[in-house]
Design a protein around this nucleic acid. Structure first.
Lengths: 224, 224
DNA sequence: GGATCTTGTGACAGGACTGCGACACGGCGA
DNA sequence: TCGCCGTGTCGCAGTCCTGTCACAAGATCC
């Protein structure tokens, strides 16, 4: 039985979704604001968090960040608009997925299953992709069994990209996430970072199998 | 031009809303009960359904469920004010949004646009149309199971067109949305873009099954 | 059937994007 | 202080993309 923590301030939406998710076989606990959510989360036993962005008090992004500080529990954000800004901010705050409201219970159920499936590959803090192993706790990286030594920037880049395999990250997003604080610098910086990372983890950097270029858009970590 | 199917039994309300929505630039077809709605829907070419809950015969929820069995077309429910039960039931039946009556035309128009923007068959970030799959997160496109490599412009074009299948996009609209910044260039540019896209995703570019030409108006993505 | 307008298609040159090497700067430990 | 390592920046070359033109093919209207 999956235990979901649903954080939503609108009582009717909360009730409705709780009901619907229970029908899909999940155990659903609820919280109506960020404080309550963090408290409940701290008590443990939560498998997945479904988090509304708009909350009274601490907003969803902040709740997301605080949860991420302590745990890798999957988080699905609920955003009201089809707004890309929300989505990007959410993913940057560490969310695993996002769903736009109003949401169909079946869709949400599918997302929950998808996100749980994905997080299984992250058991014990180790991400495995082919011959590449990333230990997100000890920060050790091995390729085909051989330990690789990455610099801090390379490591952050790899961790960021591999957090959501398959997702395309634009250079701007990577600058913000990896290099932090609105970097105005040349986005060639990202190219260089990628090149350096590839030279260490790819068997053949000219034919990368982990970090792919998506011409015109950015980079993505190849989905297994 | 967006085609809306308005299902409402009260003739006075129906006429009024039809008129108002037409003023907002939508093409509005009407049905006065569930039977008629399903029949009309089956004939195709409906972009969005506006569905009263209280209908003679088959009620709105049931109509909603039956439409959901065959299509992901967005559905906006009209419910009597303050009836929260309706809202939850509606969302569970697969509605995308709900509006309480009496409704202001501008509000309804805004909802229609919002619901269309949020897009139709975008579950799990994957749009599926026949043999064509578009993953809007990883930006991967496959045709009949084979991965296709699209250039940035081709991809933006495909994403734009497929966002609202069935809707006709004029060359000017495509120039704005795909090529961005008030492009003054030849609109033959769009033709060329479409040609290049077709050559990659269509089985027989001479008989396109995804990107259709609407002579004199522009292009549209065929509805599944 | 012919005139006219619209769309499809190939070719091509200019330009954008990316990979990559080189280099300088600054922090840090020896 | 020196040397090393990590990092940001620059420039260049190759590749791929794209805007434009010209013309063919097809649709539409009279």
């Amino acid at each position: 039985m999956v235990v979901a923590l649903l954080v939503e301030d609108d009582e009717f939406v909360r009730r409705g979704m709780q009901l619907a998710l229970k029908r899909h076989g999940h155990d659903v606990e609820t919280a109506e604001d960020g404080e309550a959510a963090l408290t409940r989360f701290g008590e443990g036993d939560v498998d997945v968090v479904i988090l509304d962005v708009m909350l009274p008090g601490i907003d969803g992004f902040e709740v997301c960040r605080r949860i991420r500080e302590r745990a890798q529990t999957p988080i699905i954000m609920l955003t009201a608009r089809g707004d890309d800004f929300d989505i990007i901010t959410g993913l940057e705050a560490g969310a695993d997925d996002y769903v736009t409201k109003p949401v169909q219970p079946t869709v949400l159920d599918a997302r929950i299953r998808a996100v749980l499936r994905r997080s299984v590959s992250d058991v014990d803090g180790v991400r495995v992709h082919g011959g590449l192993q990333i230990d997100t706790v000890s920060l050790a990286v091995t390729v085909d069994g051989h330990a690789v030594s990455l610099t801090p920037t390379e490591l952050r880049l790899l961790l960021t990209l591999s957090r959501v395999p398959g997702r395309v990250f634009s250079r701007e997003q990577l600058l913000e996430e990896v290099w932090e604080q609105g970097y105005l610098g040349d986005s060639r910086l990202v190219d260089n970072g990628v090149m350096r990372l590839r030279s260490k983890i790819e068997r053949d950097p000219a034919q990368p199998e982990y970090v792919e270029t998506v011409r015109g858009f950015g980079y993505r970590f190849r989905r297994a």
